[in-house]
């Protein structure tokens, strides 16, 4: 196979997600009653970046052929924490941000340690740790409230030069500082190898446990960034089980729409980001067409169902019936 064709097939999921997102966003923006204005883009970007960050956090774990059902709860926990400690003098705010990120890191490390060294299945482990994280969040914020440094939140949710949403730039920076070095590092490659086949990776001398652990830790870190960003948007903290649950589920949907394989070892965080943005746009499409909001959840569900069924087109390429079962 020629080099470019190989590369194309490797990034097919990411590219498809990108194309579909652009398509949907064009439909969305061109039908928006307010038109394609900076305001519309800014609102859409803030909502999209929130889910995109959670989806990136999910991606790291999914790449190792695991799943993180606690990602939404880490998001909620760090939101509650940020609403308490990211206020006051600049030094306090700085320390607070470090504290929030550190909390996410620790949550990820706990998940990773139990999965890797405790040898429990990721799905049940993260269900249980998710309950623990949510409990802590609830202890911190029995009722919604709190505050966040307003200068910082205005800056991060606003626009640069009056057009470019800062949240998008922040997301870009996160990708540039965390994802790209990760993808190119030895440990990043090891994560992909472990996700493809743990046994083969072990046989080839890949540091299996370190790679998995690192992926879980990064996942927790990014989830805490999402929690921090939510605090900047809402300027308060809320321990909402519904919020945590739906962000967990949406992150899985976004990851799949973004072309990341749930079986591990293939896909990229960039795909997941476009998957998340696409998922958000789907949800908003109904509003611009001015239909009854009553139909919005059904519409979103049907589009999601249709999108995941599209993946089955590959079945037409299967020649041997046995290949179905792998």
């Amino acid at each position: 196979m020629k080099d470019w064709r190989y590369r194309l097939s490797e990034h097919r999921g990411t590219l498809l997600a990108f194309v579909f997102f652009i398509l949907m966003f064009v439909i969305y923006a061109s039908n928006h009653p307010a038109g394609f204005t900076a305001n519309v883009v800014q609102t859409a970007a803030n909502k999209g970046v929130l889910l995109a960050l959670v989806a990136v956090a999910q991606t790291f774990v999914v790449l190792t052929a695991g799943i993180d059902l606690s990602v939404g709860m880490v998001f909620v926990l760090t939101n509650c924490l940020a609403s308490a400690i990211v206020v006051g003098s600049p030094a306090m705010v700085g320390l607070g941000i470090v504290g929030v990120l550190l909390t996410g890191l620790i949550c990820g490390a706990i998940n990773g340690a139990i999965v890797i060294y405790g040898r429990l299945q990721p799905i049940v482990t993260t269900i249980a740790t998710g309950a623990v994280y949510f409990g802590i969040a609830l202890a911190m914020r029995p009722v919604p409230g709190g505050d966040v440094d307003s200068d910082l939140s205005d800056a991060l949710t606003g626009r640069l030069f009056g057009v470019l949403p800062v949240s998008l730039i922040a997301l870009f920076v996160v990708v540039l500082v965390i994802w790209v070095p990760f993808r190119r590092s030895a440990i990043g490659r090891a994560t992909y190898a472990v996700g493809s086949s743990e046994v083969a990776a072990y046989m080839s001398g890949v540091p299996v446990q370190a790679a998995k652990f690192f992926a879980y830790v990064l996942s927790g870190l990014i989830a805490s960034m999402a929690g921090l960003f939510l605090t900047f948007i809402t300027a308060s903290g809320e321990a909402s089980a519904a919020n945590g649950g739906s962000y967990t589920l949406y992150s899985i949907a976004a990851v799949v729409l973004g072309g990341v394989s749930l079986f591990g070892g293939s896909g990229s965080a960039i795909g997941a980001i476009f998957g998340a943005l696409m998922f958000r746009t789907i949800g908003d499409l109904l509003f611009v067409f001015d239909l009854d909001p009553l139909w919005q959840p059904l519409f979103q569900g049907v589009v999601l169902l249709a999108a995941v069924c599209l993946g089955s087109v590959r079945l037409f390429q299967i020649r041997n019936r046995l290949d179905l079962f792998e």
Binding site: I67, L249, I252, A253, V256, L262, F263, W295, Q296, P297, L298, F299, Q300, G301, V302, L304, L305, V308, C309, G311, S312, L315, L324
Partner: peptide
């Protein structure tokens, strides 16, 4: 041949709708 985690999630969303 859709992973069960995904299809049941989607059906859940449809049922909710």
């Amino acid at each position: 041949r859709i992973p069960s985690m995904i299809i049941t999630l989607a059906v859940n969303a449809v049922a909710q709708g």
